[in-house]
């Protein structure tokens, strides 16, 4: 009994420390963003929403936010659109070609950011198509392709094959079976993949910087450039907005999808 209690205390203590470690930098940034002065002190010396006002009234920051959201939305839609037929072909036809494409996608995701950034900057340079927003969109969608392929594959695999056959015996052809059985089952997985790619694209800075950084200023690029040049209190506000956006996106994901299953848990879980 005593031993069990000790184990519980140790376990809780350990998990709390890890949670603290994970939360600490975020808490500090959020705290600093409320500072009155220009200095980044924590805990904040005088509470103020001054820098929030500054952030939201600054045309430059607003433009960056808009650019970031545009890029991420387009990149997530493209990545999921390309991933869907790949994952479907792997599931439905057990296609070797589709498996190879999925492999290329996930391999690309594993390459170091600097390497892919250099690769794409060379590519767009040779194409003679530099500094455009679509460079970032396309580069992001191909780099992140492995994620929707994996998530959609989990979704397809969760559709029992007998369900499709049952639909056939009730008079549904291929198209109807897809529309009435596959699509509704896949909707949460598609949404989750969209959200995931959106968030990762939103936060990517190096590729964006190297393929279009001089003309396209995304939020992380602005943070990145000010990080290299010097502290700017509005940066904190930008960071807070990103923390909140990510948190909101993943909470949404938890609400629409079975998060433990998406993350790879196969055994059912008690409530």
């Amino acid at each position: 009994m005593n031993e069990g209690l000790l184990a519980t205390i140790l376990r809780r203590g350990f998990l709390s420390l890890v949670a603290l470690f994970i939360a600490a930098p975020l808490v500090v940034v959020i705290g600093v963003s409320f500072n009155e002065g220009r200095r980044m002190t924590f805990p904040p010396s005088d509470l103020s929403l001054k820098w929030y006002r500054a952030f939201f009234t600054d045309a430059g920051w607003m433009k960056s936010l808009e650019t970031s959201l545009t890029i991420s939305t387009l990149a997530s839609v493209i990545a999921v659109t390309v991933a869907l037929p790949i994952a479907y072909a792997v599931w439905r036809y057990n296609s070797k070609a589709a498996k190879a494409l999925a492999g290329v996608g996930s391999g690309l995701f594993l390459l170091p950011g600097v390497v892919t950034a250099l690769m794409f900057s060379a590519f767009w340079g040779v194409m003679g198509h530099v500094g455009r927003i679509e460079n970032v969109v396309l580069s992001h969608s191909v780099i992140l392709l492995g994620i929707p392929v994996a998530m959609l594959s989990v979704g397809f695999q969760s559709i029992e094959k007998a369900l499709i056959e049952a639909a056939h015996t009730m008079g549904a052809g291929d198209a109807e079976a897809f529309r009435m059985v596959v699509r509704p089952a896949m909707t949460p997985y598609i949404l989750c993949a969209l959200v995931y790619v959106f968030v990762l694209s939103l936060n990517e800075y190096l590729i964006a910087y190297m393929v279009a950084g001089f003309s396209v200023q995304t939020l992380p690029i602005r943070v990145f450039t000010s990080l290299r040049s010097g502290y700017e209190p509005t940066m904190c506000v930008g960071a807070v907005i990103f923390i909140l956006l990510g948190f909101a996106a993943f909470s949404l994901l938890a609400a629409i999808g079975d998060l433990p299953k998406l993350m790879g848990r196969h055994r059912p879980l008690e409530a």
Binding site: E165, H168, T169
Partner: peptide, 20 residues
Amino acid sequence: QPANVRKFGMVFQSLALFPH
């Protein structure tokens, strides 16, 4: 004739009820 034209009602071993 494909299954969706025959339309023989079938009960599957797993039942294959649509969960959604």
